[in-house]
Amino acid sequence: MNAAGQWIAFATVARREVARILRIWTQTLLPSAITMTLYFVIFGTLIGSRIGEIVPGVGYIDYIVPGLIMMAVVTNSYGNISSSFFSAKFGHYVEEMLASPMPGWVLLSGYVAGAVLRGFMVAIIVLGISLLFTRIQMHHPWVTLSTILLTSIVFALAGFINALYAKKFDDVALVPTFMLTPLTYLGGVFYSVDMLGSPWRQISHANPILYMVDAFRYGLLDISDIGLGYAYAVMLGFAITLTLVALHLLRRGVGLRS
C-alpha cells in the first residue's frame, strides 16, 4: 500500500470514529457536559466561593477549570478508543481492517486520531461551560493546545492497549475505575501539590496526570507547580513509549490474531 493509500485508510478509520462519536453523542459528549456542569456548580460556585484563592490572584473556580477540562480529556480519549476498539474486537468487525492491506500503524493512528478529536470536542464543551461560571483568559495558546493533544494521545494509546488485552467488557471498565479516576483526582485537579506535606508531595510526582494538569493550567492561567520542561518530557516520554508498545503488540497480533 503506497503513501496515498495509507492516508485514505487512515482518514477512513478516523472518519468512522468521528461518525461514531457524533452518532452516539448522548454517550460520548453529553455526559462530560453534565458532570462538569455539576462540578462547576458544586465545587466552583457553592464551595469554591468559601474557599477563596488557592494561588494569590486566582479564584478557586478559575483554578479548577484547567483540571476539570483535563479530567474530561483523559477519560474521554481513553474511553473512546477502549470501548470502540474493543467493540470492534468483540463483534469481530475488526477483521475488516485486520484482513485488509492497511498496516498496523495506520490502524493505530486512525483510532488515536478519533480519540484525540473526541478529547478536543469535550475540551471545547467543558471550556464553553466554564465560561458560564467564570471568565478565563488563555495565556499560552500553544501550550494549551499541545497539552490537550499530547494528553489525549497518551490516554488514547493506553486505552488501545487496554482494548487489545481485554477479553470482556469488564476488562475495559476496570482501568478507568481503579486507575484513571484515582490518578485524576490525585493529579492536582482540585488542589495544588504544594499544599501536600511530605511524603505525599513526592509520591504525587509519580503521577503522570499531575504533569498534564499542571502544563494545561500554565497554558490557561499562567501558573505552574512543576515546570513546563518536566511536563513535556513526561508527556512525550509516555506518548513515545506507549506508541512503541502498541505497535509491538499489533505486530505480534496480541489479542487480535490467534
Binding site: A4, G5, I8, A9, A11, R15, R16, M102
Partner: peptide, 14 residues
C-alpha cells in the same frame, strides 16, 4: 453503504 465505502477505504480506495 458506509460499510462498503469504509471497506474500500481500508484498501486505499478513494
Amino acid at each position: 453503504l458506509d460499510i462498503c465505502i469504509n471497506q474500500a477505504g481500508f484498501y486505499g480506495i478513494t
